[in-house]
Amino acid sequence: MTTTESGARARTRREIVSAAVVALAQDPGASLADVAAAAQVSRTTVHRYFGERSELLAAVTVAVMDEILAATRRAGLDRGPAQDALARLCREYFELGPALTLLFSGIVEIREEDWACMDEDAGRGLSDTVARGQADGSIGADLTSAWIEHLLWTVLYAAWSFARERDVPRHEALDLCLLSLRKAISP
């Protein structure tokens, strides 16, 4: 096998997983044939990479985790005022779109130990950001970091589902999300 073939194989696998994220977000019951159609490959090709739906879902879970971690890094939680950093994080997460749908709907379940691994890299930044905001008085001192993280995910879910279910423009839903988070965590 040549390097080009390996690169093409990896690219096809990524395209199948990306198509699966979108297809499953639109229809949780999407079959491997539906994913193949979305990826514009044959069903046989999908089966070559993923023999069973569970294997594809495992790859989708890893892809969603990677997206969350990359979004957390892009938010730059260590830069600027704490409330601004949390707003950047919400904006980054909100843009995950179909990945959020899979996470919020339970199609993708990230195990506690996987969250713990991600926390090593990204979650500590959230705790540090909250502590920084509490130290400068911009975040309520009576709120724990764990509570603020849970709250962040909750308002993101509310905004994302509000935009989808009510056909509200995404930017309006995101504005409501940011306003709600800012009010909830202020001292």
Rank of each mutant, 00 (worst) to 15 (best):
A25C: 08
R91G: 13
D66F: 00
T72W: 06
L176I: 01
T101Q: 11
L143E: 04
S31G: 09
Q83L: 10
M1N: 09
S6Q: 14
L57Q: 08
T129M: 08
G106Y: 08
D119T: 11
T61G: 07
G137D: 03
A38I: 04
R91A: 13
E120C: 06
F50A: 06
G29T: 09
E112N: 12
V130C: 08
V41C: 13
A184Q: 02
V108Q: 03
P98S: 15
V168I: 11
R9I: 07
V108W: 05
A116P: 02
V35E: 02
A37H: 08
I68P: 01
D175N: 13
A131Q: 09
A85P: 05
T4D: 15
I185S: 02
D66A: 11
W147Y: 13
V46M: 06
L126P: 00
V108Y: 10
T144C: 12
R182Y: 00
L102R: 09
A23R: 12
G123S: 14
V108G: 12
L178S: 08
L174Y: 03
T3W: 04
R91D: 13
T61L: 09
A141H: 03
H150W: 02
S54Q: 12
R88N: 14
L126F: 13
T129R: 07
V130I: 15
Q40S: 13
D34M: 04
